[in-house]
């Protein structure tokens, strides 16, 4: 079955988030990071930070903590089309009992993320492809979330996720 490439480039939506101190400290604890710069403004300043920094993988969880309803942009139709398109690719595979896996993750920083920042994230589907190996087919969807500083429009970090669904091939 050929994979539907028409979804490449489609938007997966916009989220505005606020980065707060408590979640950053809780997250640092959870990834075994005891650095005081994530908890103590004095330590952060002494290390040259203008505000408390965040651990490098924190952007993956920013929307969980900081995407409050009252700061969201107006819903755009394009976004729901994008999410629908992702469901269109992965939905039928999951319905067939496919196993959903997080294959790869990447963060590319252009400027720091700090406590107090308000960031706007814009998601899109960057790629869709398929690999057949033996009796399994793996369908990959690469999504890209670009987080920009809301006030300046400057890019902070791009988070790329490669999600895959593994399905068994029917016997030939």
């Amino acid at each position: 079955m050929a994979v539907d490439k028409s979804v490449i480039g489609k938007s997966t939506g916009r989220r505005r988030v606020v980065v707060e101190r408590g979640p950053v400290a809780v997250f640092a604890d959870a990834v075994k990071d005891t650095d005081p710069v994530y908890r103590d403004a004095g330590a952060a300043a002494a290390a040259g930070h203008t505000a408390l920094p965040v651990p490098p993988t924190f952007p993956f969880s920013m929307a969980h903590w900081g995407a409050f309803a009252d700061i969201q942009p107006d819903e755009d139709d394009d976004a729901s089309a994008g999410m629908g398109a992702m469901g269109q690719v992965l939905g039928p595979l999951l319905a067939k009992g496919g196993l959903l896996l997080h294959g790869e993750q990447e963060f590319e920083y252009s400027s720091p993320v700090r406590v107090g920042d308000v960031l706007m994230g814009e998601g899109r589907i960057a790629d869709v492809y398929e690999k057949v190996s033996g009796n399994a087919t793996m369908t990959f969807v690469v999504t890209e979330m670009t987080w920009k500083h809301d006030e300046t429009g400057e890019t902070a970090v791009i988070a790329r996720s490669n999600t895959l669904v593994r399905t068994s091939n029917p016997p030939t």
Partner: peptide
């Protein structure tokens, strides 16, 4: 993402917080 986060802590312990330019796994 816990594994990636813990490995990220090894990176920042070494070079300091806020100094990761790119990190992919």
């Amino acid at each position: 993402m816990f594994s990636m986060g813990f490995l990220g802590t090894a990176l920042t312990d070494w070079v300091g917080a806020g100094r990761v330019v790119r990190y992919g796994v």
